[in-house]
Simulated scan of single mutants.
Amino acid sequence: MDSITQAALGATVAGAIAGKRCNGKVLLAGALLGTLPDLDVFIDYGDDISNTVKHRGFSHSLLILLPFSLLLAALWHRYRPAEAWSFSRVWLLIAAGLITHPLLDTFTSYGTQLLWPIQGYYSLSSVFIIDPLYTLPLLFALGLGLAKPERLSRFCSLALVISSAYLGWSLMAKQQIESRALASLPPTHVAADKVFITPTPFNTLLWRIVVLEEDRYWEGLASVMDADTKIRFLEQHRGHWPLAQPSASLNDLRRFTDDFVRYDVDNGKLIVTDLRLGMMGNLAFQFQFAEQDAQGQWQPQLPVRLPRAEIQGDPTRLIDRALGAQNINAQLEICSANC
């Protein structure tokens, strides 16, 4: 999730745990703990693929954060002891502030390595990376609590209940869309584990579905507000890897995306795209892997992430589609214009 949301979550968790001990310093400490795991974005792993697939790695691992929280609590208890704060409460506040970050990240589509160094990306893919309906209750509780300090902890606890209920709703909405998607698949034998479902930006009403096969994939939009439960899919060409052998970077990207990638040749450049993040015509992660020389031979290169195209189009069409308007031409236009 975005940094504002993670800071708000960390502060709210700290406020709820602190109880009557809660004050502005506690909220600030919680906000810092809530954003700490994302400092790994400043680490350069050597190339754009490594920077992508290794983000949300060791700094998001429960196997690292829990021992680290014990170390921080021990240092605090030793050098800043306070009668009102027991070791167990200090540790609980630090641990909760840290681990709620990767747990929330797991609800997004960008995989989180919860058990690093054990390989594996965890993603429930039920909320967009920025979702105001999740964040606003947290910010509202913090603002209201600072205005009424005697009720700050109670406001924080209530906000956590509301935001957690929203995450529960997102999982139920996704389950509904998944059932509709499986019932609406084209008449081919597509394995259920090759269906990817994710919310569109800033909401959990409108969802994007990607159905993957060897040389093609289908993409569709579905809203929980749709009167017609059938999902209409647009078929897309997936392409193939033209070099003799896949590179180590490509294998890393395929593991990260669960093989939801597309291959394109554009002006002699080999581009590999993550199909999960973004929408048709405006996908967020595109990488150039190779370029053709004068003889038409592919020359591999260090993968470089390409800049994202500027988003154009009328955002109200996305809103209309989220509210249940169904038109296959409008759907294609939405997919091409929004991310």
Rank of each mutant, 00 (worst) to 15 (best):
M280R: 15
D293S: 08
L283W: 14
R232E: 15
I231C: 08
F256A: 04
F260P: 03
E235L: 14
L270N: 02
G268T: 04
T273N: 08
N282G: 04
A227N: 11
D293G: 08
L253H: 09
P246G: 05
L243S: 04
I231Y: 10
V261N: 05
A244Q: 12
Q292R: 15
I231D: 12
V272H: 11
F289G: 11
R232V: 15
R254V: 00
D259L: 02
D228Q: 15
D264F: 04
I231N: 09
F233C: 09
R232K: 07
A244P: 03
M280T: 14
L270I: 00
L253D: 12
A290Q: 06
H237D: 13
T273D: 11
L253N: 07
P242Q: 11
Q245L: 07
A227Q: 14
A227T: 08
W241N: 13
D264R: 10
H240F: 13
L277C: 12
R254Q: 07
M280Q: 14
E291K: 15
F260V: 00
N267K: 13
M280H: 14
D258Y: 07
D264C: 01
I231F: 12
D293L: 04
D274Y: 06
A290F: 03
L275K: 06
R254T: 03
T273C: 09
Q236H: 07
G239Q: 07
R254S: 06
S247T: 15
F287T: 01
S249Q: 15
L275Q: 06
L275P: 05
R232T: 14
F233P: 13
D252H: 09
L275T: 02
A248L: 11
H240N: 12
G239Y: 10
Q236P: 00
A248N: 10
S247H: 05
L243Y: 00
D264E: 13
R232D: 15
R276T: 06
L253Q: 07
H237T: 10
G239N: 07
D252S: 14
L234A: 12
R232M: 12
S249P: 01
R238M: 04
F260T: 00
E235A: 15
R254N: 12
F256V: 01
K269Y: 05
